[in-house]
């Protein structure tokens, strides 16, 4: 009976229990349950329209669930605004990153939470502190920004993402929600962002990583929730699922197999047939088709 007390202490930082969300007659989320623990990464996978966005907005306080409950440290909580979620320690890095391109890295880093010095009418933005903290935090995350004075607009997509992540980490987030951080990036840049996700995890944050790419999710994830058309296709720990199964569930294996067949057989063009064969082989490698 050592399991029970351990579970109580080690409650997930954030947990969803049977959460549903409707927009009129549209079922956006139905009966979704998952959890994320400190020092772990929970990946939420799904294709376009699977309900990923609705789920993030529910976690970040933009929407409130119509059914089910959200628990933090085992206690039910109500997140009725983005500010409430932030105050509870849930930081969301949205796809637009919430950075201002024309402003410098360090000004962006502290935007909305600027340190001040002086009193009364002489209260001012403590720029020296802001600059040195921003530089140190970025460095500690392994983020190599050449010059904190440069405008964020001049950074690459991966670098911008990393500034947003470092900012959330610094401002005491316990849960970090990342909305498709790798989707618009090239292979190398995506790898860099995955590295920051691992960094955040190693610092003890509970990370929720939303993506439609199982190849990005599998290496960093500890838990995987797969969504399809608002329904959960399953919530797995890492040892319960393989990369191939994950990919197959994501893509809707049967549909992909059908496509591979059509491409390889029905075309008169030998080049298309060849492409189809390659596609089928690849699908077979992934365990989708035979």
């Amino acid at each position: 009976m050592t399991m029970a007390p351990e579970t109580a202490i080690d409650a997930p930082v954030l947990e969803l229990r049977n959460v549903s969300k409707y927009f009129g007659s549209v079922i956006s989320l139905k009966d979704i349950s998952t959890s994320v623990r400190a020092g772990e990464v929970t990946c939420i996978l799904g294709d376009n329209g699977a309900g990923k966005s609705t789920l993030i907005k529910t976690l970040s306080g933009v929407y409130q669930p119509d059914e089910g409950e959200v628990l933090m440290d085992g206690q039910p909580i109500t997140l009725d605004s983005p500010r409430a979620a932030l105050d509870a320690g849930i930081a969301t890095v949205f796809q637009d990153l919430a950075v201002v391109p024309l402003m410098s890295v360090w000004r962006n880093f502290f935007l909305g939470s600027e340190p001040t010095k002086g009193k009364g009418p002489f209260k001012r933005f403590d720029q020296a502190t802001a600059k040195s903290i921003a530089r140190k935090e970025l460095k500690d995350m392994g983020i190599d920004i050449r010059d904190p004075d440069q405008a964020v607009g001049t950074l690459s997509g991966g670098e911008r993402q990393s500034v947003a992540i470092a900012r959330a980490v610094y401002f005491g987030a316990r849960v970090l929600i990342l909305d498709e951080p790798t989707s618009a990036l090239g292979v190398k840049q995506a790898g860099v962002v995955l590295k920051y996700i691992v960094q955040a995890r190693d610092r003890g944050l509970a990370v929720v990583f939303i993506t439609h790419n199982p190849h990005h999710a599998f290496p960093v994830g500890d838990r995987f929730l797969i969504l399809n058309r608002g329904h959960s296709m399953g919530d797995f720990a890492k040892n319960e699922i393989t990369r191939e199964e994950l990919t197959a569930m994501m893509a809707g294996g049967a549909e992909l197999e059908q496509l591979a067949h059509e491409l390889s057989r029905d075309s008169a063009d030998p080049q298309v047939r060849e492409a189809g064969r390659e596609f089928k082989d690849e699908a077979a490698d992934l365990g989708i088709a035979d």
Binding site: L86, L97, A98, V99, V100, M103, R107, L111, G112
Partner: peptide
């Protein structure tokens, strides 16, 4: 500067 640069982003960071 932030409000003029990107209103949405500014609102999102408080």
């Amino acid at each position: 500067f932030a409000t003029g640069g990107d209103r949405n982003a500014s609102r999102n960071v408080g």
